[in-house]
């Protein structure tokens, strides 16, 4: 593991590490943008799982499928499995992406749940939103645009009545 992970509310430290590594492939670091795992989205998703029990089964199943697929890749490339507790972490970036694509194809519903929750965690992360320039909708709202110009409707008005008498 590249860094120490601790147990979450629902996920074990091993699952947090696996999820963070997956998330760094789903939304990788690029320019000023952090990778989703590095931004703390695994811990955020762990929080979602605590609050929303219905998410636990698909997210845990997705993690299991990805890890199982990664295990097969690791074996195929004759890696030493004992060197890590998380097979996915033993893979190269290209192998990680291949494992993710395999699970996405085989279990689209599970994968999409994991993807959706990762996206939700990332784009509600205050640090990410700050970099992107997003702020909450209130209290400022957005600037009031110029008043509507009724002249724009002249052509529509010229066509006359469009409804049926009844």
């Amino acid at each position: 593991m590249s860094e120490q992970h601790i147990d979450g509310e629902i996920l074990t430290a091993r699952q947090v590490a696996l999820l963070a590594a997956i998330q760094n492939r789903l939304i990788p670091a690029q320019d000023e943008m952090p990778g989703a795992g590095d931004a703390g989205c695994a811990q955020t998703v762990d929080g979602f799982l605590k609050e929303r029990t219905a998410l636990r089964r698909p997210i845990l199943a997705a993690l299991n499928e990805i890890e199982a697929t990664a295990g097969a890749y690791a074996q195929a490339s004759a890696d030493d499995e004992a060197s890590t507790h998380v097979a996915f972490l033993a893979l190269s970036d290209a192998e990680r992406d291949a494992a993710l694509r395999a699970v996405e194809a085989a279990h689209p519903d599970l994968f999409n749940t994991l993807l959706r929750q990762t996206y939700t965690a990332y784009y509600t992360n205050p640090a990410v939103l700050r970099i992107l320039g997003w702020r909450p909708p209130q209290p400022e709202g957005y600037p009031t645009p110029p008043p509507f110009d009724e002249k724009l409707l002249d052509n529509v008005k010229r066509r006359g009545k469009l409804w049926r008498d009844a």
């Binding site: 929303r52 939700t120 784009y123 509600t124 992360n125 205050p126 939103l129 909450p136 909708p137 209130q138």
Partner: peptide, 15 residues
């Protein structure tokens, strides 16, 4: 209770 003032306002569409 409305989430509009919070950075995670879009999360509340799912909760």
């Amino acid at each position: 209770d409305y989430p509009h003032h919070s950075p995670d306002w879009e999360l509340h569409r799912q909760t």
